[in-house]
Computed example of a mutant assay.
Amino acid sequence: MSLQGLSTVAVTSRLCCSARNPSTGRTISVRCKAVGENRQVSLDETIVYEGIYGPWTVDDTDVREVILYRSGLVTAAASFVVAASVAFLPDNFSLSAALKQNVDLFYVLGSGGLGLSLFLIHIYVTEIKRALQALWGLGVLGSATTYFVLAQPANKNLIEYVIDNPSSVWLVGPLFAALTGLVFKEGLCYGKLEAGLLTFVIPIVLLGHLTGLMDDGVKLTLLASWMTLFVIFAGRKFTQPIKDDIGDKSVFVFNSLREDERKALLEKLEQQKTQN
């Protein structure tokens, strides 16, 4: 198989990671400790990873952006769990009233956390990343429209209106479709069971509410599963090595090159492969 064919398979089969696209082909040394590595890394030590198109390393900016990516997921998960917990608290419980009054605030915080993660997510196929971001944008726009045009005139908060009016799922749904795409990518790349389960639980809950084919008991059970899986998913992100969420930086370096530079690099790598 040619190197070009090999690179195509690698790029299309792996949608992993999160961070930034490097703008140059230079190897950058790391002066940090990579979280979750199998061994301790001193401040002066540089770990060089072998990528498809050459060696690469982790820098301080990569570490910060991965932490922000994971923090966005934690924010989204925590906000969702707090907001959704209202469905399980007794009406006469003092905390229940306070949560109901601020449930839209948690919705905004969770949406913002998800947006941050989608901005920083590292996916080799740019079109997929842009599609997830577009879904998030549509969901935010739809949520704002639902709140200001429909919920406020009815003297309801956004969540309450969506619960009472299942058809409004069409407006807020794209936001959760973006979340589904993110967890699907995580499940596919890292084999995370909780992410794989969320890929099915999220759309099932929304479609069940939209169609009215699911009774409240089933919806509450699935909602509780969603809350639990989301917490596990977000928490376990911090057990992964930083480099996992960065991915193969050499691919992004390659994608940033001009066509003639790509061709020259492929020819060089092909020659090295033949010599070896």
Rank of each mutant, 00 (worst) to 15 (best):
3 L>G: 00
6 L>H: 08
6 L>K: 10
7 S>N: 05
7 S>E: 05
7 S>P: 01
12 T>I: 14
19 A>Y: 09
23 S>D: 11
25 G>V: 09
25 G>Y: 06
26 R>K: 09
27 T>A: 07
29 S>A: 12
37 E>I: 07
40 Q>N: 12
43 L>C: 07
43 L>P: 02
45 E>Q: 11
51 G>F: 01
54 G>E: 00
54 G>C: 00
58 V>G: 09
59 D>H: 05
60 D>K: 10
63 V>F: 10
65 E>H: 12
67 I>E: 11
72 G>K: 08
73 L>R: 13
74 V>D: 01
76 A>P: 01
81 V>D: 00
81 V>S: 01
81 V>K: 00
87 A>S: 11
89 L>V: 03
98 A>I: 13
99 L>K: 00
101 Q>K: 11
101 Q>H: 06
105 L>M: 09
107 Y>T: 13
107 Y>S: 13
110 G>Y: 05
111 S>I: 00
111 S>H: 00
112 G>K: 01
113 G>H: 06
115 G>F: 10
125 V>C: 03
125 V>I: 14
128 I>Q: 08
128 I>A: 08
128 I>W: 11
137 G>C: 14
138 L>F: 14
140 V>I: 14
144 A>N: 02
148 F>Y: 15
153 P>M: 04
153 P>D: 04
155 N>H: 13
159 I>E: 04
159 I>C: 05
167 S>I: 15
167 S>Q: 13
171 L>G: 00
172 V>P: 02
189 C>Q: 02
191 G>V: 01
193 L>F: 09
197 L>I: 15
201 V>M: 05
201 V>Y: 03
202 I>G: 06
206 L>D: 04
208 G>V: 08
211 T>R: 03
215 D>T: 02
217 G>T: 10
228 T>A: 11
229 L>E: 01
231 V>G: 03
233 F>Y: 08
236 R>A: 02
237 K>T: 13
240 Q>L: 08
241 P>C: 07
247 G>L: 03
248 D>G: 03
252 F>T: 07
254 F>P: 00
257 L>W: 05
258 R>S: 15
259 E>A: 08
263 K>P: 08
263 K>H: 15
268 K>C: 05
271 Q>H: 10
271 Q>W: 09
272 Q>L: 12
272 Q>M: 11
276 N>H: 11
